[in-house]
């Protein structure tokens, strides 16, 4: 069974048609990058996957749960689908250690000792072992985002959603975060990444999705080829602007 399946999904905000007839399947262990101009519906698409946004019509299956079904317990899906936000959203009132262990202790009912042991391992993975007792406000943006990834991993999720994870970072911080994301990808995690980092999409992504105006305009199983030779006119326009900007 696929990890995530969109079948003719539509999403409206009042009269605004935010997602138009989305069909998309993400297999387990796949890394899918979603790119496109701002306002194209990338983040909205991502947020429907863990129910932060509700879909208006169509079918959305996540780990075999039907999200349109009122009986589906969203908390069960969220437990298995982690999320990393553009603005990190670390709990401002809690230490780094507490940020990472809150979910495991409260939701997975893991003992505190066990949760902290795992948290220390994850802090090692993201290279921030010595920050455990600090508050989020004491860290740099790049450090915060690496903690956010550790926090998502602590729940042992089946997939992680990344919502523009490097957009709010200073340029010199981006590399560290992307390195961590590569490590996570190498471990076989299912990842859906909304990003402006074309390098990541090209090198790490198994698959690439280009969105514009709420639609999926182009899908490619070979990201490198897409960047050399996009088919959709909007994709061509978008890439030409990106390259100029670089």
């Amino acid at each position: 069974m696929s990890m995530i399946e969109f079948h003719d999904v539509n999403k409206y905000y009042g009269k605004f048609h935010a997602l138009k007839n989305i069909n998309l399947t993400v297999e387990r262990g796949e890394v899918v990058s979603i790119i496109g101009p701002s306002g194209s519906g990338k983040s909205t698409l991502l947020r429907t996957i863990n129910g932060l946004e509700h879909i208006s019509s169509g079918q959305l299956l996540v780990d075999n749960f039907d999200l349109a079904d009122a009986k589906t317990d969203m908390n069960k899906i969220r437990k298995n689908v982690g999320m990393v936000f553009q603005h990190f959203n670390l709990y401002a009132n809690k230490t780094i250690m507490e940020n990472i262990t809150l979910g495991p202790i409260r939701v997975l009912k893991v003992s505190k000792a066990e949760a902290e042991e795992r948290a220390n391992k994850l802090l090692g993975l993201v290279g921030l072992q010595d920050q455990a007792n600090k508050l989020p406000s004491m860290l740099s943006g790049g450090q915060k985002q690496r903690i956010a990834i550790a926090r998502a991993l602590a729940m042992k999720p089946k997939a992680i959603l990344f919502d523009e994870p490097t957009s709010a970072l200073d340029p010199e911080m981006i590399g560290d975060v992307l390195d961590v994301m590569k490590k996570v990808a190498d471990q076989g995690m299912t990842m859906i990444v909304v990003t402006h980092e074309m390098g990541f999409a090209k090198e790490v992504g198994d698959r690439l999705v280009f969105m514009a105006d709420g639609e999926i305009r182009e899908e490619s199983n070979h990201p490198k080829e897409f960047f050399q030779n996009p088919q959709d006119p909007r994709a061509k326009e978008f890439l030409s602007k990106i390259i100029h900007a670089d």
Partner: peptide, 11 residues
């Protein structure tokens, strides 16, 4: 974002 993050982690 604080409550979104918490909800996203299954709380």
């Amino acid at each position: 974002g604080q409550s979104e993050a918490a909800r996203s982690l299954g709380l």
